[in-house]
Computed example of a mutant assay.
Amino acid sequence: MTQWGDYSTGERIKLLRGPETQERLAEATGLSVHTIRKAEGDRGVSLQSLLLISAALHADVSVVLGQQAPRRAMRGTDRAMLRALSQTVHDASAGIGADVEPSGAAALAAGLGAAWQVYRSGDYVGAGVRAAPALREAAAALRSADAGKVCEARGTLADAYRLAAYVANQFGARDLAYAAIGHAQDEAERAGDEVRGACTASGRSWIYLRDARLEQAALTARRSYEAIEPRFGNRDLGLLATYGWHVTLAAVVAARRGRVEEADDLLSQGRAVAARMGRDVEVNGTAFGPAVVAAQAVGISVSTGRPGRALELFAERGDTSPLTDSARQRMMLDVALAQSDTRQSDAALDTLLEVCSSAPQWARHQALPGVIAQKASAGSATTGKLRKLAALLGTSVIIS
C-alpha cells in the first residue's frame, strides 16, 4: 500500500487539489497557472509559493511536503503522549481531577518551568509528558487557592494550557491546540493579565499560521501586540519582551503573506524593542531580545525571496548564545534554505545535515528539511548526502 510520504510533492498537491482545476488553484493562490504546473510537475517552486498553495488547499505545508499525512502518522510514543495530554486538557477544563492535593506553588512553578525548558530545547514529546502533570497541578492549585491568590493561579493555569497548545500544534493536532489555547485565553482574561492575554493571542496566531489560516494569523498577531504596546520610556523587561516578540511574530506572518514592506516595518519595530532591552529574556515561556530578533530576521528575508540578504544577516548576526537549541536550529534551517536558493546546493545540504544530525527528533517536526532537500536534489547536490539525509529524516521523498 502506498504511503503518503511515498508520493512526490507534486503528486500530493494533485491529490489535495482533487477535482478542482489547476486554474482554480492558481486563482485561489494568486500564482500563475505556470507556477502551479511547475509545482505539480516537481520542477521546483519557492517556499513562499508552497505556503500559498498549502493555504489554498487548507493543508499544513508539512502535509504538502509529505512529512505528515493529512492526518499525521505518528510514532507510538507520540500518540501516547498526545492522548494523555488531550485527556488532561479536557479533564482540567471540566474540573475533573482538580480536587487532588496540590504540591505547592514552588513545586508547581518548577515543574511548569522545566516543561517549558524541555519544549524550548525541541523535545516536544518530553515537553508534552511534563505538561500534562503540570496542567493537573495548576488546575488543582486554582481550585484550592485563597481569594487573594486566585488571579495568580489563573495566570499559571493559562501558561500550562498554552504549553499544551504549543505541543499539540507541533504534532498537527489542531483540534487539541485550538481547545487548549482557548482555555488559556479564558484563564488569562479571568486573571486580568494583559501580558498573558497577549501571549495566548500570539499562540493562537501561530496555530492559525500552522493551519494555513494566514489572514486570521495576521489579524490576531496585530491585536496581540497593539493591546500591550508599552509607553515610551517603559523599561519593564517582561512587557518589552512580550511586546517585541508579538511584533516580530506579526512580521513573520506578514512575510508568509508576501507583504515585504509590512514585514520589514514590523521587524524594525522588533529590533528597536530589542535594542531598548539590551539582552534576551524569557517571560511566561516567551523568549525575546537581540539574539531572537536577529534569528527571525534571517527567516523573514528567506521567506520574502531575499536569500542573499538572509546570508548577509546571518554573517552579521552577533552573539546568538542566548538562543534556545530549537531557535538556533530553526535559524540554521533558514540559512540552509538561503544557500539552496542561491544555488549553493552542497553547502545547503552540509548545513541541513549538521542540523538533522544534531537534532533528528526536532527535525522530523519541521517542514523546511523537505523543502531544502527537494530543491537541492534538483540542483547539483551530491547523491550521497541526499541519501544520508533521507536516512536521518526517515523519508523516501528526498531523492528524486
Rank of each mutant, 00 (worst) to 15 (best):
R257L: 15
L352H: 04
L237P: 04
A28Q: 08
A179Q: 15
T35Y: 00
V281N: 03
P102I: 06
A348T: 07
A367V: 07
Q344S: 15
G18R: 05
V293Y: 04
G258V: 00
L386V: 10
R154G: 05
L323V: 08
M277G: 06
V273C: 10
N234F: 12
P322Q: 13
S358G: 12
L57Y: 05
A132I: 05
A92C: 14
Q374S: 13
L337N: 06
G384K: 10
R190V: 04
R256Y: 08
P360W: 15
Q48V: 04
R136I: 07
L323H: 02
V195T: 11
L249C: 02
W116R: 01
Q361V: 14
T304W: 01
G305P: 04
L219S: 15
F288P: 02
E316G: 14
T342G: 02
H246K: 08
C356H: 00
Q296D: 14
L65M: 11
G172P: 03
A127K: 03
H183K: 10
V118A: 06
V273M: 01
A153G: 07
T342Y: 03
C151K: 13
D186Y: 07
A147T: 13
S357G: 15
A131N: 04
W245G: 07
D264S: 12
Q170R: 05
T351R: 02
T304P: 05
L85I: 06
G244W: 01
G111N: 10
I181D: 02
E229D: 12
R343Q: 14
Q3P: 04
G384N: 15
S8E: 12
R143K: 14
Y119A: 10
Q68W: 02
E101Q: 14
I399W: 03
D325G: 10
Q361Y: 10
E20V: 07
N169Y: 01
I207M: 06
P360I: 07
V247P: 00
Q269A: 11
A251C: 12
R24D: 04
A106V: 15
S303I: 00
G270P: 03
G5D: 06
D186S: 10
G113W: 01
A294F: 06
S345G: 11
